[in-house]
Design a protein around this nucleic acid. Sequence first.
RNA 1: GGUCCUGUAGCUCAACUGGAUAGAGCAGCUGACUUCUAAUCAGCAGGUUGGGGGUUCGAGUCCUCCCGGGAUCACCA
Length: 603
Amino acid sequence: MLWKNTKHFLICQSIITGRMMNIFADFRARIEKSIRELMKQGVIADGADLSRISVEPPREESHGDMATNAAMVLGKFSELQPHDLAGKIADLLSEDEEIASIDIAGPGFINLSLAPSVWQGQVAHVLRAAKAYGNSDIGADKKVNVEYVSANPTGPMHVGHARGAVVGDALARLLERANYQVTREYYINDAGSQIDTLARSALIRMREALGEDIGDIPEGLYPGDYLIVVGQALATEYGAALLEKPEAEQVAVAKSKALPMMMEMIRDDLDALGVRHDVFLSEQSLHDSGAVDKSLNRLNEMGLIYEGVLEPPKGKTPPPDWEPSPQTLFKSSEFGDDSDRALKKSDGSWTYFAPDIACHLDKFERGYEQMIDVWGADHAGYIKRMKSAVTAVTAEAGNLDVKICQMVKLMRDGEPVKMSKRAGQFITLREVVDEVGKDVVRFMMLTRKNDAPLEFDFVKVQEQSRDNPVFYVQYAHARIFSVIRNASKIFGSIRDEDLANADMTLIVDPAEIALLKTISAFPRVLESAAVNHEPHRIAFYLQDLASTFHSLWNLGKERPDLKFIIDDKKNVTMARISMIRCCAFAIASGLDIMGVRPEEEMR
RNA sequence: GGUCCUGUAGCUCAACUGGAUAGAGCAGCUGACUUCUAAUCAGCAGGUUGGGGGUUCGAGUCCUCCCGGGAUCACCA
């Protein structure tokens, strides 16, 4: 009983929030209806595969609003030639009043031009959905785990981490908007030798805090100033007595102090970017709980683990100290990897790979069949083994997608930013956010697809010009609010509720309809971005939408009859305000996915 | 040498994963400001998609071989 109500609620909500308003999906359904009719008539064979049918905006504007390859794809299920089959489909579709004209082109494309009423009608949907405009149901409430950042807790985050953080967070937001149940996860590498190094580095700083002259930080330890406070904390809490204890105990104590402090610092940095995780999974906990043993046992039962000796790496530069030694290996080569991979080092301790497998099995057992990891480009070489392991350990029920973030090149007015050569001195994430603001960082990190390198210019990203996509999109949004403010001065306050009553049949000019069309494309963009795990598509779309808007705004200079505000025509003004309000909602909705706050004023 | 990214207008990048005549911005010319903020816009020009071969109705996109750029390559994470 309860679930029925819940489901009913979800359906209502999906209508309220604008889900299922994807106009392309709508017309695809109409096309499929015609095809089923032709199946009944025996023109198309029963059981024809409809999955390869696409309904999309044609590249060429003169080809209409929508194009489908249906007749071409279904050619082999019919005795008719694709071109003739297209004619049959077109005949049925022509009964649809919302289709203004149908054209059959090339080898059998069916091009549809939609009636203005279709585009005018979109306004009501967008206004109702408001900032939820574009939401989709393709996720069907399925669980997805997105793991991102996962920086080693040995120091502050640098710019490279920022990209992964933004991409992961935007991807999570995007999937939520497509009705996936998303968990944001951070895997803490708190068990490796680098944590011992962290502890030793903190102990040096503790001596320093106790007044000892430590000189230069020894080679191999972390020299960064950020450890000074950790040393002070250790000194305050434990005093010199700690240094009398056996070394192993000192390290253990330092570790227990330094680790939480590092994680707190990282969380603060992420917070400055507006990035938060739901789950912090500790590698050490996977060892302690026996999860590592468990996942390895599982692979062992499958016969995928053996003791063996790996070939030296192929090529002309084998490591100088390479020597063959038997190790515990996973047969990842059976799952598409180039070689089998070591689970244990030659001394019998675990490699990092083993707990990584446990980590993903843990996610799977928590209900995430779909997992997405966002990694830096330097980890690209591990994709195959990790995917292999996930496939194996979940008996092919789990799926892992790995998004690789290429490097960020920091520039200042066209010149590369020089990094200090002193070890430990990077440009930190915090410095970048402090200088340009989180919204700018977030937007810029999404202006390139994740696997392409990205240039980030401190000067350009703060310019108020066409060159700067952040400004350009924000300005479009602010400009709309400016117009609404001006209109309010003439016609009295304008509330969103009032706009729903506007007479949209007054929107007829092709330039105006063009804006409505671009706005209407958003749900489709959102879906394709979600399906492909590519949040950057939202950024590109917003630039396109902003451009269409600015273009229409300027058209009002040449043709005053197309200005948004016509002093003596309230009906026309209200219709146009409704139209641009929808544009603002689409921008706000897209920016929300990127985690960027829309501006209502640009002073 | 292996693997993975990558190569598209002078420059920076798109192209909805196989669709029609490959699109934007910058830079370069030409034009529009007592503004619904010109912080913007319109127009012109710019191409053998690194190269060759293949798959099919159709290829920037898929397969293959070359050429160039980047990342990575037992026992570090």
